[in-house]
Design a protein around this nucleic acid. Structure first.
Lengths: 156, 156
DNA sequence: CCAATTAGTTTACAACTGTAAACTTAAAAA
DNA sequence: TTTTTAAGTTTACAGTTGTAAACTAATTGG
């Protein structure tokens, strides 16, 4: 199913999801153990989060007998991509490039990742504009968030 | 001041911030007008968000007479970078590369942005590992979220 | 100087989040 | 088959977020 994109996953839910994605099929017991060891969550906490994720359709219980197992109902990569794109969508378009740079700098990437990114960039360069317009204000109020000094107020 | 990084800005606050960052110094009146036109917010809504942002130190009121003006107390680029890095920090390290690719693909980047990214990647390639380890489970429970099929459960 | 008008401050309130206890089955052990 | 234990379901509860009304204190227009 591809209805996933809209499932909003919160910070703590994200933690649980990662375990489910990684194990592909887990019992609540395993999840409780993992989250206890990893975040010191009380078992009830894991149970609650598991329940919420099931309700919002991010996890599906499988099996017919009592100790059910749980499997992800949304893909990890797709969820990550959506979350990342969404974040960038709410920030100034003009500064996205630098933000991406910050992310890359903060992270370890494999040779393959780098190659893929270089590939994409090279392709993108062919049609890239000289400059990306700032989209921080409603049309008409044409201002640009990068004009001049990035001042940060008084106390300096 | 550089204590900024930790100021957590919520989704709607982000909208207001963008206007403040762009205008550099605004009156509440201008903000109210902008947010009304851009998000159909009631004036009280803008007032509340402005107040909350002041309280959490993201905006500073300036002036001594009554109609104060407001200026950002944290830098836009730094805030964006922090938000983006934070998001990636909570997702699987092994899949960050693809997520970055998704962001790049979803976005318009300027020639300069692309050049900068290529520069960074080239540098990073020199010491990049063959593979980035999955960090989704607590140490010891060594599993890797990318082993085999990215199945998405039943209903297909 | 008094009345309108604004700008700024409090209060409101439901939904969502993080965190967890309590309760109710169903399964396993005795 | 009775008791224990583990799995699943409800309820709880404070703090945050989105949204906004109400109230108070300055400003400004007469």
């Amino acid at each position: 199913m591809i209805d996933e994109q809209q499932v909003a996953i919160t910070d703590s839910e994200w933690e649980l999801m990662r375990a489910v994605w990684t194990l592909k099929r887990v019992s609540s017991r395993q999840l409780i153990t993992i989250m206890e060891e990893e975040r010191q969550w009380a078992d009830s906490t894991t149970k609650t989060l598991l329940r919420r994720l099931i309700k919002k359709g991010a996890i599906t219980p499988v099996g017919d007998a009592r100790p059910y197992d749980y499997v992800p109902a949304v893909q990890e990569q797709a969820s990550m991509d959506a979350a990342a794109v969404r974040l960038f969508d709410q920030m100034c378009a003009m500064r996205a490039g630098s933000a991406v740079a910050a992310v890359i700098n903060s992270r370890e990437l494999s040779q393959a990742d780098i190659a893929q990114l270089q590939q994409i960039l090279q392709e993108k360069a062919k049609t890239a504009p000289q400059m990306v317009a700032c989209n921080c204000l409603p049309a008409g109020m044409g201002e640009n968030c990068m004009s001049e000094g990035d001042d940060v107020d008084g106390q300096r």
